[in-house]
Design a protein around this nucleic acid. Sequence first.
DNA 1: TGCTTGACAGAAG
DNA 2: CCTTCTGCCAAGC
Length: 113
Amino acid sequence: MKDYPDKMTPAQARTFQEDVLNIVAQIPRGRVTTYGIIAAWAGWPSHARMVGRTLRYSPEACALPCHRVVNIAGRTAPGWSAQRELLQREGVAFKANGHVDMLRHLWEPDTEH
DNA sequence: TGCTTGACAGAAG
DNA sequence: CCTTCTGCCAAGC
């Protein structure tokens, strides 16, 4: 038995987007989370790419700390060099390979402070 | 309707 | 560590 639906209805797509933005808004300063984690928390484990799409194309995302979302390897978004500086400004440590130190900064919605 | 594109993830070489 | 490939799935064309 599957624990999640096969496809999103328009209504579910709206909910998904709201949940994504909602979660992103909760990421504490100096912490980061991943696309996959956000997708899973929104109830759609296999929709990590949708999270990226939502942040990329939602006007609301601009007002949120969307720079605190990186991929699971700690790599910042391609074509967005400013993201790294925004994070460093918050005290996020980067490893020698240019990736975020996930072990130190990874944050999950249910582990809030 | 069918093929291509990603702000992804994971495995392989 | 980096590149490439596969699986993933909504959007665009």
